Simulated assay, not measured.
Amino acid sequence: MSKDFKQKLKENWENFTASERKIATYLMHNIRELPFETATSVGKRVGVSPMTVGRFMRALGYASLGDLKEEIRGDNTWRHFYKPQEQVKDADEVDAHLQAETRGLASAHALARTKAWKNIIKLLVSADQVSVASFQHSTFLGLGLAKLLQQVRPRVAFSDGSDAAYPDLLLDSTKNSCVVLIDMRRYFKQFRTIAERVVERKIPLVLITDTDCYWAPEVTPHVLMVEASEVWHSFSAVSSLFSLIVADVSKESGDVMDRLSEINELRQDLVGYLGAGPGRPPKSR
């Protein structure tokens, strides 16, 4: 998708009508099919008239849908999600990488000062169970968050989606539960589809994503959006966000040391820990 077109949608999103948001959402998620679409076909798919589609395109500065199709012709629609790191002449590449990472970390910590953050922590503490799911290259993030939360509260599970229908997440959660969905950059279709199914079932939903995911606040008020990283393979900001979440859940849950002690006793009893190496006594505390 043209970067200019994407930027236009993001800049004008708050001013769009409900019908215009339907059109924008469809175009964002079905850009590959656009060469085969007309104003009439788009209108039918989203439930608006062809004239509404035409007015929407003109409001964005295009004479018609055809103009947009011409603009994106030959564009590799996935590339804008993978932002190349800025090249700075005569600068240390490691320093440039560090600066990009630092901006991401700052954005994650800024989220911990928001009203939305407080509501999300309260939800994660009070829910009778927490189900976490994540998608594509973000899969390991969801597993990591679930494992961390299991240390500080009971009844936390990672839903691996092995049967693609997520019955454990959709059928076993209630209005007293909480579902956390995680995805970054190119957003898997399942990410939004499952999010909408969770909301339809009136299950409290938390979305953890990046600032390019413009539609997330439309689905749920419980959204944490870290700055879209210039280093596409970096997840340090999200990892830091998870650390902050677990710290605040621990604080709001009261004394979690009893739970941690019992977990460690079980591990020692059932699995065991490595002691000090031969000839090296354990360090005194």
Rank of each mutant, 00 (worst) to 15 (best):
M1L: 15
D4A: 11
D4T: 05
W13Q: 07
F16A: 04
T17P: 00
S19N: 15
S19H: 10
E20F: 00
I23F: 02
T25R: 15
L27A: 00
L27Q: 02
I31A: 07
L34E: 08
F36L: 15
A39C: 00
R45M: 02
G47W: 02
V48I: 04
F56P: 00
A59G: 10
S64E: 01
D67T: 00
L68Y: 03
N76R: 03
T77S: 06
T77N: 06
K83T: 10
P84F: 02
V88N: 10
K89R: 10
D90W: 02
V94H: 02
L98T: 01
L98D: 07
Q99E: 11
A100M: 11
T102R: 08
R103T: 04
L105Y: 01
R113G: 06
T114A: 04
I121C: 05
K122I: 04
L123C: 09
L124A: 13
Q129N: 14
V130C: 13
S131D: 12
F140A: 15
A146K: 01
K147T: 05
Q150A: 15
A157Y: 11
A157V: 15
G161I: 09
L171D: 12
D172E: 14
T174L: 02
S177F: 07
V179H: 03
V180D: 00
D183P: 13
M184Q: 13
R185H: 12
R186Y: 02
F191N: 09
R192I: 06
R192H: 13
E196P: 01
V199D: 05
R201C: 11
K202R: 15
P217D: 11
P217A: 15
E218C: 04
L241Q: 14
S243Y: 08
L244C: 05
A247K: 07
A247Y: 14
S253V: 09
G254V: 01
G254C: 04
D258Y: 05
L260I: 14
N264P: 03
Y273P: 00
P278G: 05
R280L: 09
K283N: 00
